[in-house]
Design a protein around this nucleic acid. Structure first.
Lengths: 208, 208
DNA sequence: GTCTATATCGGGATAGAC
DNA sequence: GTCTATCCCGATATAGAC
């Protein structure tokens, strides 16, 4: 019973994760996943029936891993600044440790937008509520009608882009892997500093 | 002579651009490119010999389009703040108008890192000089040893990420195309404001 | 549940006629 | 220079034995 249902399914998912994360849907090969899992192609289909379904499982995992605590932090009852601080601390950490996930998610949206729609619905994100949360908090604390969407989009950009664009930036600046890793480390303190300073632009805002 | 060398090659490149930009290398189909150009597959190979070579041409175009004025602005003899202002104005414009290019470039780096190395070499970027330019300017103007790399990485993140992540963000917040386009418009003024305020963190920096 | 062998198809590339 | 027809490989998926 060692290699029975439980164990094998796990092994496959683990292998699929590795391959899909690195190569995306189009680039991934079922053969490679099978090899990685130490089994053969036929067995992949026995467990997941198609490449699509296997991909979907992997995507769902990745997405919830990235979304998990974010929602929680986001809806917590804290002042905006503190919330952003917490978010940055948490996210810069998570994303640096799992550098492949952001690109995997992003790329999935380009490769298979149709297939992935379902996953977002099941994630119960509730966009209107999300938007209202954004708006009301800025209105209360900053007495500003500035679209608060930008603040969060900026925060996300600063966290995610440097990780996603790593291959490009490394190539342009000819940076070895370790040098770039070090830069990502530094960002854990640099980005909060940058953002906190930038937020002052809204404090002094008199566009009521 | 209407459909001779000149005209056809142009048509192919135009078609290839459309398809590769949307689907990347793996996702693109030679058949689709041929259809788009109004010719057949055989002719594609007659002009470009392989999918790889065709892709390379398209990539080279896209990259120089994105890199073109950037280098120039970057090496201009202006104070850092002004330089960043100019850069932002220029880039937020270019990138909003050519929303597909950043993802195409990025994705290319993931799909075909080996093949694209050559292109970066020919682009004559001169990384060490680039780095030194960064460092010396910050040293002079801010009397700071803060790694100036972060400033520019932040600027790039704020410009590019919102464009690249458009499909994801739209899905999460359930935003229609026009709404998102409007947000990108707003960013042309929001991002400079955000960055200029953030830069003050370095002015007051006494980490000499 | 797991394997080997095979069906089936799609896509890049080439041959050869015009 | 452009077309039709075809080759050929690689990849997903399935049949069927164990």
């Amino acid at each position: 019973m060692v290699n029975s249902r439980q164990g094998t399914e796990e092994k496959i998912l683990e292998a699929a994760k590795k391959v899909f994360h690195r190569k995306g849907f189009e680039g991934a090969r079922m053969q490679e996943i099978a090899d990685e899992a130490g089994i053969n192609k036929a067995l992949l289909h026995y467990y997941f029936r198609s490449k699509e379904r296997l991909f979907e499982s992997v995507f769902r995992d990745a997405f919830s891993q990235l979304m998990g605590r974010a929602k929680e932090i986001f809806f917590s009852e804290k002042p905006l600044k503190e919330k952003i601080q917490t978010f940055l601390t948490h996210y810069l950490e998570v994303i640096t440790e799992n550098a492949y996930i952001p690109w995997f998610i992003l790329n999935g949206m380009y490769e298979r937008p149709g297939q992935l729609k379902a996953i977002f619905e099941q994630a119960e994100i509730n966009p209107p509520q999300l938007m209202e949360q954004l708006r009301s908090q800025v209105r209360k604390e900053y007495h500003s009608e500035i679209n608060p969407f930008h603040i969060w989009l900026n925060v996300l950009s600063l966290c995610i882009f440097p990780v996603v664009a790593k291959p490009l930036i490394r190539e342009i600046f000819q940076l070895p892997e370790e040098a770039y890793q070090q830069i990502l480390e530094q960002r854990k303190t640099e980005v909060p500093r940058f953002v906190m300073q930038a937020l002052k632009a809204y404090e002094n805002d008199e566009n009521k």
